[in-house]
Design a protein around this nucleic acid. Sequence first.
DNA 1: TATTGTTATACTCTATAACTATA
DNA 2: TATAGTTATAGAGTATAACAATA
Lengths: 166, 166
Amino acid sequence: MAVEPQTARALIHSVFDLQRTLRCVAHEHKSTNVGSAEAGVLRMISEVGGRAVHIAEKLSVSAPVLSRHVAELEERGLVARTPDPEDRRAQLLELTEAGKAKLAEIEEARTALLLDFLAGWDEEEAAACGDSIRRLTDTLRTAGHRAAAPLVHGRDPQKEEPLAAR
Amino acid sequence: MAVEPQTARALIHSVFDLQRTLRCVAHEHKSTNVGSAEAGVLRMISEVGGRAVHIAEKLSVSAPVLSRHVAELEERGLVARTPDPEDRRAQLLELTEAGKAKLAEIEEARTALLLDFLAGWDEEEAAACGDSIRRLTDTLRTAGHRAAAPLVHGRDPQKEEPLAAR
DNA sequence: TATTGTTATACTCTATAACTATA
DNA sequence: TATAGTTATAGAGTATAACAATA
């Protein structure tokens, strides 16, 4: 059975409420000296590494945003930039030892905090919650790209409608 | 079985990824002239109404933030402020007819968009996803308050540890 | 004294535009 | 021409601090 409008509406509200709550939790437990955006940069460099443009795309941020964060992280000795031998315009990003340690510290603090919060949960619930959220994220990402991509290339294959217009 | 650290860590990453994706979707479909924070104010005034301090608490924002948003929304004729007859310091917030119409327009656009995105989902999945997210939000909110509240009152009943420190 | 709300100021995160340098 | 990255600037959203008016 297709999704009911009422269910979709409730899901939207749930997601907004989650975002508000996350902001509060982050605010109450802002532990380290690394901002959450910069922590995301550390994580992504650790996971995929390579060129800045690649990291920016994975993080879904614009190049200038990443550039500033990387500059800040490099100044603090957490990230190292090396010129790409295959393309002198590009640079390769990697974590320094200090950067790896900082990322591990952030991840451990977050995990410990969440584990404490989830004291009343069992493994299956938490796994199902993660799966559910990942499924939603994948759907939104794919659908968003499907809707936005035709405007990026010059093709405009099907003159796709704004979707929410009707 | 208690939640595994690895599951908690995956859940954290899932939530951050969701936030990034939501930012993109919002950016690609920023339809109306009302910002997302102001839309939240409209929704909360519609749902609970009453004093500004009450709305601010429900939205988990500080009083100055709400004050600015309300001032902006009043200027646009979407929100009406009336003095509270029971307390001359306070003011009662409500939506104007234009405000109600604007809120309905926003909600309908969002719902239509999400319904389109969720074309491959069935009702049960979407409902379960919403339930899962709401359960997580409730847990985070309750746990956050439990950890933060003792510092708000002067009591500090159990000298609760920072939780993530150990 | 405590609370409601406002104003002033600053911080975080983000985007677009204009630029340099390579390809 | 197009791409990788930087700098400059602006905007949205938020917070804390200091204030006014009322309780």
